[in-house]
């Protein structure tokens, strides 16, 4: 297993994919940080823009957002990375060489799973260093509370890390399930970015039409809602954060298990 993991890590390091993803993560995180700084500025200086808000609670929310900047795009990129870790083998037809060196295919997928988690954690580390680092400087210049000792804030940062890892695993699962690189990436992104909204709108319409509230709740079982529940320290609409984590993990696990079963039986040609 150690050998397979070493080999998979070397695969990640020896192509240009990792720094392309890195550039993406840094760029999106920078944009998110700028946006969240603006939002925090507005919260600290109420009345500068728009209606009055303020209050310590909304500042806490703003600071939490600032410290976890880049989560939205970062998790998507972690998912894409997870997809590519698997589908690259078929896209570049390296699966043959891989399975010749490690004929026990479950081992290969297990190693990829661990590498996906590592990649997720590395992306989380990068976004956290950027967001917390610049956030601290920004808050100091505004003479605002840093909230660094705040349990809620720390919990959010921790859950942020979990989100990255789970999304990378989720991506690997999609990749193993669909195997086609282009299909996986498109389907993954569409489902996360557009499909989510469409489903939510449809569910909202249905629930208001039929006057049944539980329909709305279905939306929380979708991957990206589950992710946002997970990263909210208080959860949302009666869901605890850990329920969101479990839902998202379940998606990843189901996709990975089905993908593994398919891969074990599949003819590599």
């Amino acid at each position: 297993m150690i050998r397979a993991i070493r080999s998979e890590l070397l695969k990640v390091r020896t192509t240009s994919l990792w720094w392309l993803i890195l550039i993406g993560v840094v760029a999106f995180t920078a944009v998110a940080i700028a946006f969240n700084m603006l939002a925090t500025y507005v919260t600290i200086h109420p009345g500068t823009v728009g209606p009055q808000q303020g209050g310590p609670d909304s500042l806490l929310t703003s600071v939490t957002g600032l410290y976890t900047s880049g989560q939205y795009a970062g998790t998507l990129l972690a998912m894409v990375f997870g997809i590519l870790i698997f589908t690259n083998e078929f896209f570049h037809q390296t699966a043959t060489a891989t399975f010749l060196a490690t004929p026990k295919r479950t081992l290969v997928i297990g190693a990829k799973l661990i590498v996906a988690v590592i990649v997720g954690v590395v992306i989380a580390l990068i976004t956290t260093v950027l967001a917390v680092g610049s956030g601290l400087i920004f808050l100091s210049t505004q003479h605002a509370d840093l909230y660094l000792g705040n349990a809620e804030v720390l919990k959010s940062i921790g859950l942020n890390w979990l989100a990255f890892a789970i999304w990378a695993v989720f991506g690997l699962g999609i990749g193993a399930l669909l195997r086609s690189q282009i299909l996986s990436v498109i389907l993954g992104l569409v489902a996360m970015l557009i499909g989510q909204t469409v489903v939510q709108v449809v569910l909202a319409l249905l629930s208001s039409y039929f006057h049944v509230k539980w329909l709305m709740k279905i939306a929380y079982y979708l991957p990206s809602s589950a992710s946002s529940i997970m990263t909210s320290p208080h959860g949302a609409d009666g869901f605890e954060w850990w329920a969101g984590a479990l839902i998202l993990l379940a998606y990843g696990a189901v996709a990975a298990v089905i993908g593994t079963v398919i891969t074990r039986q599949r003819d590599i040609s």
Binding site: T15, L17, N88, T96
Partner: peptide, 10 residues
């Protein structure tokens, strides 16, 4: 087995 089974970017 195949001449094409390498990652082109590696």
């Amino acid at each position: 087995l195949e001449a094409s089974s390498f990652h082109k970017g590696r």
